[in-house]
């Protein structure tokens, strides 16, 4: 018999600290994946995972089982990851304008050709994307990551970012628009 998350939470709140270990084991991988996607850094993601589970433990009394522990801890982790990104952002100066000049990176689509051109093209796409991603606000970026890579619904994104559903939807839309614009130079047909 495998105890479910709610049962474990009750055990922890009744004084069994070690029971929490089962929740950590169960949810660490998915929390890590989301943390990595948002922070883009392995060490930062590991830190976010630890912090999220620590905070989760400390706030466990406020956990209401209707949302499920997995969803709940995921939200906490998204918050920690966003804080981490903002912390890093204020410590680093991005030089977006400098490397975002699309004319410098314009390449022609070598339609359906296999081989080296294709690889070059995907590298160009990646470079443009990376630049465009940095040009998004933290909310837009996170909303997009949750939508596009983590397959989360608007409602879940809104809850994770503590914003209204409509604002979450708008953030995703603005992110997609900006990213599409960044890919536009690649769409020039000869």
């Amino acid at each position: 018999m495998e105890a479910n998350d709610d049962q474990i939470v009750r055990a922890v709140l009744a004084g069994d600290k070690d029971a929490y270990g089962a929740l950590v084991v169960r949810h660490s991988q998915s929390v890590f994946r989301a943390a990595f996607r948002i922070t883009g850094d392995e060490a930062d993601a590991d830190e976010v995972v630890q912090e999220a589970f620590m905070r989760g433990y400390q706030r466990l009394e406020s956990f209401e089982s209707r949302s499920g522990f997995g969803t709940w801890i995921y939200r906490i982790a998204i918050n920690c990851a966003l804080n981490m990104v903002n912390k890093r952002k204020s410590a680093t100066t991005y030089q977006i304008a400098e490397d975002a000049d699309p004319t410098q990176q314009q390449v022609q689509i070598a339609d359906h050709t296999a081989g080296p051109e294709r690889t070059l093209l995907s590298r160009e796409i990646e470079a443009l994307q990376a630049t465009a991603m940095r040009g998004l606000t933290a909310t837009e970026r996170t909303a997009f990551i949750l939508r596009h890579m983590e397959d989360r619904s608007t409602a879940e994104i809104a809850a994770a970012l503590s914003i209204a559903p409509n604002a979450a939807k708008q953030a995703v839309f603005r992110a997609v628009q900006k990213l599409r614009r960044s890919l536009a130079p690649l769409r020039v047909t000869p």
Binding site: K17, D18, V24, S28, F32, F36, F53
Partner: peptide, 26 residues
Amino acid sequence: VPATPVRGEDYGQQVWDGIRGSLRAY
């Protein structure tokens, strides 16, 4: 979607070992 670095099966246990000492039982 950027590839996520792989974390081993015992990752969760490592996380738990890392934080366990700083938590106080309810």
